[in-house]
């Protein structure tokens, strides 16, 4: 059973009526016609809703509890995912998953946030909010990838890095900074995919890359719409306005020159067809990796530096 978001209520109603009708087993002659009518109304309503998503609705899709995560993508896109654990210093952060996998015949390093799909798992994964150990595990794996010359693909989906006492004690800021620093000079190609919620520094900690890919309904922002509304508007009810003002959807980031490519999702969002979404994403990754792997390391690093160096908006630009 899939979860319906608030704005999907009209769909829920139509789908339920349709289901009931199909199951009724009624012999009525008009039944097939009724089903057809209802089906076409459903399709039309879906197109209306999903064709005109507001930034806040997009945010809700990006945060959908059934949104596919790195573990789903591993299942549908890669073979023999070998998960590796631990930061070799303090612990194993379950909000960050990483290891190596075979992607279209090639060994790649994969790292991503994992929010978990059931409530129990979400608690175990700390809702995808990593502690410093998560970033340090990611760094350790990236350095392994560099040593063995494997490209790195990251899957970003987090509300943000965890704000807690232990996180501060163990250097959350330094852990993220360390990743930005190392990723900017890592001598293998890096592709970052924003799969769901790209929440601020916690997202960027896996996000310094040669290519930044966003799924159609993913978001990427310096602060959550809620946080921004609370601080700038001083009014929690202004979340929708903040979501729009922050310009955090794939389409907006493409316009701003931050995202390199936006991968289309099935109507309604990636959770409606994780396998189909994986196939589209795999195609993009395949193309991007092929381009990057033919670039010399020196050129790769020069291009990466230049890419980020250009990310500024100055007056009279």
């Amino acid at each position: 059973m899939r979860d319906f978001l608030e704005f999907e209520k009209p769909l829920k109603e139509l789908e339920e009526r349709l289901e009931k009708l199909k199951k009724s087993g009624s012999e009525r002659k008009a039944l097939p016609r009724l089903i057809r009518i209802l089906q076409s109304r459903l399709t039309k309503t879906e197109q209306e809703i999903f064709g005109n998503l507001t930034p806040w609705q997009q945010t809700q899709i990006a945060r959908h509890p059934q949104r596919p995560s790195i573990l789903d993508y591993m299942k549908h896109m890669c073979e023999d995912f070998l998960e590796l654990h631990g930061d070799r210093a303090f612990g194993d952060d379950k909000a960050v998953v990483g290891g190596f996998a075979t992607f279209r015949g090639r060994s790649i390093c994969v790292i991503g946030h994992e929010k978990g799909q059931t409530f129990k798992e979400r608690v175990k994964r700390n809702f995808g909010m990593a502690n410093p150990e998560g970033y340090r595990k990611a760094l350790r794996l990236m350095q392994l990838a560099e040593k063995f010359k494997r490209p790195v693909v990251t899957f970003i989906d987090t509300p943000g890095a965890y704000p807690g006492i232990g996180a501060e004690e163990r250097g959350q800021a330094r852990a993220i900074a360390g990743n930005l620093f190392a990723m900017s000079r890592l001598k293998v190609p890096i592709v970052a995919v924003i799969t769901g919620e790209g929440g601020s520094g916690g997202a960027l900690g896996l996000g310094v890359a040669d290519r930044i890919v966003m799924l159609e309904h993913s978001i990427y922002s310096v602060i959550s719409a809620e946080g921004c509304a609370a601080i700038l508007w001083e009014d929690a009810t202004k979340t929708q306005a903040a979501a729009a003002a922050l310009k955090m959807t794939g389409a907006e980031l493409l316009k701003l020159g931050i995202a390199d490519e936006v991968v289309p999702e099935p109507l309604g969002g990636a959770h409606r067809d994780a396998e189909g979404t994986s196939q589209s994403l795999a195609q993009t990754l395949h193309t991007q990796l092929n381009q990057l792997l033919t670039t010399s390391t020196e050129q790769l690093l020069a291009n990466r530096y230049e890419k980020f160096r250009q990310m500024a908006a100055l007056a009279d630009d």
Binding site: F308, R309, M311, A312
Partner: peptide, 14 residues
């Protein structure tokens, strides 16, 4: 400055 402000973290670190 939205996402561009976040990217200043990456570019200064680079």
């Amino acid at each position: 400055e939205g996402i561009l402000s976040l990217m200043q973290m990456a570019r200064t670190s680079a």
